[in-house]
Amino acid sequence: MLEHQEFIASPSFNVGDRVTVKSGHPESHCRTPVYLRGKRGTIVEVVGRYHNPSLLALHKPGLPKLWLYRVRFQQSDVWEDYDGSSRDTVIADIYEHWLSSDEEHLNVSP
């Protein structure tokens, strides 16, 4: 039986990169919350490679693994009338296919 060699891609993004969260049609099971779609943030950690939750959700093996990042957003960039300190931030774990380096990435599916 032929062994399927899994090609391990290197992460597309590094700590410090500015990224935009895509805002296209989500998968059936999606871990990118709506409140962050289309928002611009900064990579603070390259967490590692994990099985694709959208595929796992459908009893599929979840391969190829996806790079996962912790991305930090200024709250004032996320919410129109954010009522806290301008220092405040929110961080979420986002999979690579949901991120783009482009400044504007409207309605593109991950």
Binding site: V90, D93, I94
Partner: peptide, 15 residues
Amino acid sequence: SDETEIRVSDSTADV
């Protein structure tokens, strides 16, 4: 304090 950053971490995936 307002001088302190509030940093909210949303556990959306494997962390």
